[in-house]
Design a protein around this nucleic acid. Structure first.
Lengths: 260, 260
DNA sequence: ATCTTTTAAAGTTGATATCTTTACTACCTT
DNA sequence: AAGGTAGTAAAGATATCAACTTTAAAAGAT
């Protein structure tokens, strides 16, 4: 089986690179695949070819094809399988891989806790609003289940924190907006703590109460109410996180600040 | 010059992988670098090593080190230079590379125009609010300059659209929140059209008027006012885009829908 | 005879070694 | 100080073997 027909060998020394950009062979292959994707010549799940296919198609060595696939893999554009019937194919959307990439980028730019929490407020308030408008019975059931789940884990700090995070995610899922969901996953990846030292029993109960109110506002389809309550809720979380961690840039000990 | 000291060879067959995942050697190196980054053992700009350094340090072949660097490069974690004094070093935050990556991901998941515009509304309303609170004189000057710039290009559809996009970006910059800025860049990368066919002169003037009001609300530090006006503004843009393009998933002709 | 299990084979990535070529730096010469 | 030169490191090529995974054929049991 050959390489996907939408990719063509650049025999004539490649594109007319503006100015003087020789660009590596592998990056040219990457660019072609990316462009083919945007041009809808390649669709998710479609077979792209094996390392040897690509090498033959582009008239380069296997190493170059391999380099290109490594890059495309890191970008979440292709998935590579080993063994017979293996090779590279266009990936489905890959939120988890991507959330980690965003976390790294935010880390490299050294954003502060308050910046992250402000963005989270923007995302989550709209998610709550849209969830109230678009949630279906399955979403309602999931929210109820997570509330029950959290209550049963209220004495286990770590498990409770995890359940709490899932509740926030479930609201984003209930909004049926995949952009908001991806963005929230990314931000949680940066901002959510593994464990929460400042979480007392009293706070846990208060948080649970707010979550219950949020869920019932969403079930009652009160978009404005859900939005306002979420706004207050995230503001409270923000205040706690910033207090725990300080306002300044995260140069020191930015090891997962507190949450719910 | 050797490899960075924070990286250590995993002689004992690597981490305890849950279940049974040997994982490739290159991915182990990638994971170590990423973890070292999160643990603040590696800082932006720091020298990581050459291909041979890494290969020697981890006791693997140069190709493996190369694969790892390809991945880290694609993730925007390292920058690689050729020649004497070259090698890999930790990259500075790289929003542009990243915006493209998010655009690809959103493309792969096939999000609709309405989903993107809703998320954009969440980001931009908060950006306007924070810009009113945090903007400094330099930000004010930039906004004024862009208004002047747009007015001069009001008959050049493409240039006007570009200037318009920069105005929205400038507001996000004025918020001094880098998370919002990155998210907006990413969304614009997906949603902003190269040219805008449905943009008439009347609409252009109306948009410019709204932008002027936005700028003056930000200068006057009226956070609530800026927020509300931006909300209306983005809702209007959203309505235009969705009408142009339809509600359904972007399987067909999702070629950069209209804007301002 | 048919169905299940085991085994073998083929194809593909993973990884190593060695080599040539290309491009960039830094040093050195003038 | 300017420019040439040598050294260094990535870019690329080729060959080879190992590890893995699916498919299919072969052996066994029902």
């Amino acid at each position: 089986m050959g390489v996907h027909p939408s990719l063509e060998r650049d025999t004539a020394a490649g594109h007319v690179f503006l100015g003087s950009r020789p660009a590596s062979l592998s990056s040219q292959i990457v660019a072609q695949v990316r462009d083919a994707l945007f041009a809808k010549k390649l669709k998710p799940g479609e077979f792209l070819g094996t390392e040897n296919d690509l090498a033959a198609r582009f008239g380069v060595s296997r190493i170059v094809a391999r380099d290109a696939l490594r890059t495309l893999q890191a970008l979440g554009i292709v998935e590579v399988k080993m063994g017979k019937g293996g090779g590279a194919r266009i990936a489905r959307g890959n939120t988890r891989l991507f959330a980690e990439a965003l976390a790294v980028q935010l880390d490299l730019t050294g954003v502060s806790a308050s910046e992250i929490m402000d963005a989270q407020r923007a995302i989550e308030t709209l998610a709550a609003e849209l969830a109230a408008e678009h949630a279906n019975p399955a979403d309602h059931a999931r929210l109820r289940h997570l509330l029950f789940d959290a209550e049963s884990k209220i004495n286990d700090n770590e498990a409770y924190t995890r359940s709490c995070r899932d509740f926030h995610l479930a609201i984003a899922e209930a909004s049926h907006n995949r952009v908001l969901l991806v963005q929230l996953i990314s931000l949680q990846h940066v901002s959510w703590p593994a464990e929460n030292r400042t979480l007392t029993a009293a706070v846990a109960w208060r948080v649970l109460e707010v979550h219950k109110q949020l869920a019932s506002l969403i079930v009652m389809r009160d978009a404005a109410g859900a939005r306002n309550l979420m706004d207050d809720h995230v503001k409270m979380i923000r205040a706690r996180r910033v207090a725990e961690h300080g306002e300044q840039h995260g140069e020191k000990s930015r090891s997962r600040y507190g949450c719910c």
